[in-house]
Design a protein around this nucleic acid. Structure first.
Lengths: 232, 232
DNA sequence: TGTAAACAGTAAACAGCGTAAACATTTCAG
DNA sequence: CTGAAATGTTTACGCTGTTTACTGTTTACA
């Protein structure tokens, strides 16, 4: 059972991240400064070093939170759909990806951009969190495929042999085998979604397309139908 | 005709950018520091202010160069293809986009990411350079459509009415009318390409797909064929 | 050609940053 | 209650972008 001191420490660790997020939300990812956080907390800067050994460690913690929050959003969106309704699930998951990104642009840039000078999150920390976010869409697609509802167009089945070999090896090494064509479908959908989100976030598409939300939803629905999944 | 001093000034302006790029290439976009550039040029930092009024102005200049270099790469790739060969042109243009990005990751992050703290390039400077890069693919697609070679699948023709209305207004306001369905195809292709490039650059896809080059080329070719364009 | 203006550079300084070391205080456990 | 651990402050170092004042050099014009 945690002592009073340990509880206090835990809340301080959380407060620091909270203030950091607030600062970034206000001034962009640039606004993250230890001294700024310390000012807001009415504490001196070196005091923060009792909690995070360096600025980069704080950022790493924020990134980890970000990946998990995004994963939570997608998992929740998936869970909210009725079963089986594979198309609705897929649609909801990718909409959740975009919605979360647009609602939390700073966190999204933190995890999927490189907004912090000279910083790259250690892979051994981020990869598990990333993988967690991919579980719902992988499951939904795999189940739909197993149920013979998802029928990928031909070109997903005739992948380049290097990719096909890699995906088969990957599926075998994993305890959770995913057919290469399903994996390819997921990569395609993710790629598309991510591209739209990133370009929209950097304000490149709104001036070209007008209603980016409608366009995005239309694109995802079109993909679902191309995969023989019914949606809406 | 330029005086000796003006020539000198021009080369210094260029040298500063050159050194800046070298520093970023060496230490990531974080490595961009005026004092660092000054050190490399064996000059004091304030001297640089005679050439760029601030660090952000230097970055803006670098971004402008980046957009133009990317546009040049795509234009050159397009020009190198035989005519009409619309499929080959489209394929070459998007491959050029990816190739340039992977060959110049720092510049790419500079123009399509937000790697510099607290900095966002002024739109009135970047937009024209961005538009320039889109000319070849817009032209290739529009010509292919006019020649009835490009045949977009149905969902590109039944766009959400908000998007459709916006694209029609956009085409009308422009001197260069692009049919909405062609614009939608371009947005789709760009989105896909950009998403793959960004995810690959941040090392999210290589561990999932193995041969990302093969996968990318496969994806673009599949899209071309979906559009009734022959390629390879 | 002589001179005034524009240009190019330096030195010094200011404010802000991340961080390390030394020191003081608070809080808890034996 | 006492000593140790946790938490905080003070001070300092070296880095950053940027401003100011001052010095030469180059150019343009009367």
């Amino acid at each position: 059972m945690p002592t009073r001191r340990e509880q206090q420490r835990e809340t301080t660790l959380e407060t620091i991240k909270q203030v950091a997020r607030a600062q970034m939300a206000h001034e962009g990812t640039a606004g993250l400064s230890l001294r700024g956080i310390a000012r807001d907390m009415e504490v001196t800067a070196p005091a923060l070093y009792r909690y995070y050994p360096s600025r980069d460690d704080l950022i790493t913690a924020l990134i980890l939170d970000g990946f998990n929050a995004l994963a939570d959003a997608m998992i929740a969106a998936d869970a909210a759909q009725p079963r089986p309704a594979y198309g609705e699930r897929i649609y909801a998951i990718f909409c959740a990806y975009r919605d979360w990104a647009l609602a939390n642009p700073v966190d999204f840039q933190l995890i999927y951009g490189n907004p912090i000078p000279g910083f790259h999150a250690p892979a051994e920390v981020t990869v598990p969190a990333v993988v967690r976010g991919f579980i719902p869409m992988t499951e939904a697609l795999t189940e739909a495929y197993a149920a013979a509802v998802l029928r990928p167009p031909a070109h997903f089945q005739h992948l380049p042999h290097t990719v096909d070999a890699f995906l088969r090896a990957f599926a075998d090494s994993n305890g959770y085998p995913v057919p290469p064509e399903v994996f390819a479908v997921m990569a395609h959908a993710w790629t598309m979604t991510h591209g739209m989100v990133v370009l929209e976030m950097h304000r490149h598409t709104p001036s070209l397309l007008g209603d980016t939300t409608a366009f995005f939803q239309h694109q995802i629905k079109a993909l679902c139908r191309e995969l023989n999944l019914t949606v809406r």
